[in-house]
Design a protein around this nucleic acid. Structure first.
Length: 427
RNA sequence: GGAGAGAUGGCUGAGUGGUUUAAAGCAGCGGUCUUGAAAACCGUCGUGGGUGCGAGCCCACCGUGAGUUCGAAUCUCACUCUCUCCGCCA
């Protein structure tokens, strides 16, 4: 959410930001501003009526018996006027709130400008696309060869875009999460395993609602939602709190099962482990001071951690800075990591690191008291993937496959796999 | 699923329709005293909003949302959450 004061005082800047993000037709800035001034006038009027009413009510006890009925009559009359005004006010307020909730965050001034993913900028490539001295298999064939999956059967039981993995691949999935959690723990993150079910408010707080409502599973019998990321819960963990500046930064490594409807992805990646409805994710989440230098520094730190994770996994990857039209509504700046997938001959997204600045904190009402000036301020929040599986298993097993169908385990991961240097091979 | 109790500021906790402008204490912050500190004493101390150049004045908020009333922390209803007990259960 943006500050309405910021919007009214920086209309040109906001208009430019909306255009860059591709939102100029999705929100009505002029209506928002005129609603706000109408609301302000109405608030002033209702408040003076309340003031008058309070005065009359307070005078009743000391009033004489003759005066009393007149005062009550007068107060009733003001009360009726007040009620009419308040009804109108709450109607306008509702409209205003839903319009303001649709306003995206302003992108970083130096973020690459573009309309879709074609505008994303490759910042660097680490490692070379893997070369094979044999004909490499895709991850599905590798799973079949090693008795690592139950992909056909599970679709019949659980529907499309689900997965079941077996044996060493199943262990590998958990081992990678353990490795990542250890790394985050070493970097000062609090490990926290969080629920995958949530109430509506956290979805609004994060910006899932109203922006990505198609993406979310909803359980009407209980009025609960399935979470698509631990970010959802972590962002709301401290909602409505006023933290002490000394408590910041707060670092969370949140692990959770994640659920996504993939409604907009019909026909894409229907086979295999790349895009499934339920997966596991370890998420990095940071709450820091309202200081753009500090949150930008944390953004770089989060990016560096996830790069280190891909390096430890010995998977070739590239770093993208995502352009204004491709980053989501909440974001100020976004980097994606994409790992090399040999069978597809392309880099595929494994990580997404975002600086949200205060946009989420405003929705979440997540604040802290500044030590310097004693003022209450909205925090900055950032998030980044730690690792998401099974998606990350795709580049992992494809890049590390050997001629005999076994898969090499990199040195950093071996302690989490019982010291094994290879998995698979014999069935 | 059944029965009961409860939710008041950073914390503890008083308050059952109008001197409550939410008492009091603790913690915090500023000061006096002191070589310094502690103690003691004095002062200050919630959030959001409206209005004003400003000191200020005003409005709302006692878990959330409605309602009754001239007037609600207090009465009514619904909901949320917490705790205790029973039942079921990985």
């Amino acid at each position: 959410m943006l500050d309405i004061k910021f919007i009214t005082e920086n209309q040109d800047l906001v208009r430019e930001g909306l255009k860059k993000k591709g939102f100029e037709k999705k929100v009505n800035l002029d209506e928002l501003i005129s609603l706000h001034s109408e609301i302000t006038k109405l608030i002033t009027s209702t408040q003076s009526k309340k003031e008058e009413k309070n005065r009359l009510s307070n005078s009743i006890k000391s009033a004489s018996n003759e005066e009393r009925p007149q005062i009550i009559e007068k107060s009733k009359k003001i009360g009726e006027e007040l009620k009419a005004e308040e009804e109108k006010l709450s109607e306008l307020q509702k409209k205003f709130d839903s319009e303001l909730a649709r306003m995206p965050n302003m992108p970083a001034p130096d973020a690459p400008v573009g309309v879709d993913d074609s505008g994303n900028k490759v910042i660097r490539k680490i490692g070379e696309p893997t070369k094979f001295a044999f004909e490499p298999l895709d991850h599905i064939a590798l799973m079949e060869k090693n008795n690592w999956g139950e992909m056909e059967r599970i679709a019949g039981v659980c529907g499309s875009r689900t997965y079941a993995i077996k044996n060493d691949l199943a262990k590998l999935e958990l081992a990678i999460h353990m490795m990542v959690l250890d790394k985050l723990s070493e970097n000062g993150f609090n490990i926290i395993n969080v629920p995958s079910i949530a109430k509506e408010r956290p979805l609004y707080n994060m910006g899932y609602l109203p922006f990505a409502s198609d993406e979310i599973y909803y359980m009407p019998a209980d009025e609960l939602y399935l979470s698509g990321t631990a970010e959802l819960v972590l962002n709301s963990l401290h909602m409505d709190e006023i933290l002490n500046e000394n408590d910041l930064p707060i670092l969370y490594a949140g692990f959770s099962p994640c659920f996504r409807r993939e409604a907009g992805a019909a026909g894409k990646d229907t086979r295999g482990l790349v895009r499934v409805h339920q997966f596991m994710k370890t998420e990095q989440f940071v709450i820091c001071k309202n200081d753009i230098k500090e949150s930008e520094a944390w953004h770089q730190k989060l990016l560096a951690i996830s790069e280190e994770i891909l390096k430890d996994l010995e998977v070739p990857y590239q770093v993208l800075e995502v352009c204004t039209g491709d980053m989501g509504a909440p974001k100020y700046r976004q980097y994606d990591l994409e790992a090399w997938v040999p069978s597809q001959g392309v880099y595929r997204e494994t990580h997404s690191a975002s600086n949200i600045t205060e946009w989420q904190a405003r929705r979440t009402n997540l604040r802290y008291r500044d030590n310097q000036d004693g003022k209450v301020k909205f925090a900055h929040t950032l998030n980044n993937t730690g690792i998401a599986t099974p998606r990350a298993l795709v580049p992992f097993i494809e890049n590390h496959q050997q001629a005999d169908g076994t898969v090499k385990i990199p040195a950093k991961l071996q302690p989490y796999m019982g010291g094994k240097k290879f998995i698979g091979g014999k069935i």
